[in-house]
Amino acid sequence: MTDYDVLRVFCGPNGGYGNELGVVRDGSVVPDAGERQELAAKLGFSETVFVDDPERGVIDIYTPGTRLPFAGYPCVGVAWLLDVPELVTPAGVVGARQDGEFSWIEARAEWAPPRTLRRYATAAEVEELAVPPAGEWVYAWAWEDESAGRVRARGFPGRGDGIEEDEATGAAALLLTDRLGRALNIVQGTGSQILTAPQPEGWVEVGGRVRLER
């Protein structure tokens, strides 16, 4: 079996929650794209990352069913693991930095995969939602405290690949931040925390806590 690490990305303040991420630190052991897709499907994480150059931060990202040019929470997690100033993805070069307990990336909204951002009137409505049928990728959200930028959200991939709900999704948070044009403090899933901040010239920072699960 190929060696891999498991990270938990976008943990809550107590270190719990967060979304599990598989990371193959030595991507050369699985060089073929088809084999990478097969392994990502076998591992079953929302995303699995293959590191092709740890010093330059060159990475390759897969869901259980497809390859992604960019994804938010994998970049936040791998930036923490590799401790590099940038990551090189097919979509572009992602800035990275560490700030105390938070790992941050800087990316562009147009790199993110399509998401339907669906606003609800209250956080309670979001919490009570049932998983929708497979189809569009839905990011359900509502203000918990609009003046403070606090958001309650849930992510439903709708891909039909066994991942009915994502505990935490950086790309969707990036898109919401770009749309609203303001910094956000997002609680997603059962208790994951995502911080965001718009930057000049269309860039958005996305940050959160990361810990090594195993």
Rank of each mutant, 00 (worst) to 15 (best):
G16I: 05
D52C: 12
L82K: 04
F50L: 04
D32C: 11
L39C: 07
W111D: 06
D52W: 11
L43P: 13
V24I: 15
P64K: 11
R36V: 03
L81T: 10
D32A: 15
L82D: 06
L39G: 08
E101W: 01
D32M: 06
E110M: 07
E20M: 06
V76R: 04
R108V: 00
G27Y: 09
L68V: 08
V84Y: 05
A71W: 05
Q37G: 15
L43K: 10
P31R: 10
R97Q: 11
A41C: 12
W111K: 06
G72Y: 03
G95M: 02
W80H: 14
W80T: 08
A40R: 08
D26G: 06
G22S: 09
V76Y: 01
E110F: 09
V30I: 08
D52L: 15
R67M: 13
V49N: 07
Y17D: 15
W80L: 08
G44V: 12
V49P: 07
I105P: 03
G95P: 04
A96I: 01
S46D: 09
A107W: 00
S103Y: 05
V94S: 00
E47V: 09
R36H: 01
A91Y: 05
I61E: 07
G16T: 14
R97H: 13
L82C: 05
L43S: 10
A79V: 03
A41V: 04
D26S: 11
P90T: 04
L21T: 06
P31G: 11
T66V: 14
P90C: 11
F70H: 02
W80I: 08
G44A: 10
E55R: 14
L82G: 06
D83R: 14
F102S: 07
G100D: 12
G27I: 06
G95V: 00
E55H: 12
T63N: 09
N19D: 03
D60Q: 14
E55N: 09
E20C: 04
R25M: 13
G18H: 00
V94E: 02
F50I: 02
V84I: 09
D26E: 14
Q98L: 14
D99M: 02
D60I: 02
G44N: 10
E101V: 13
T89K: 02
D99E: 15
D52M: 13
G72C: 07
L43M: 11
T89E: 02
L87V: 08
G92F: 00
Q37F: 02
W111R: 01
R97E: 13
P54K: 13
W111I: 03
D83N: 15
F70M: 12
F70T: 04
G57E: 02
V94H: 00
S46L: 05
Y17L: 01
D83T: 06
K42G: 04
A96R: 03
E20V: 03
T66A: 14
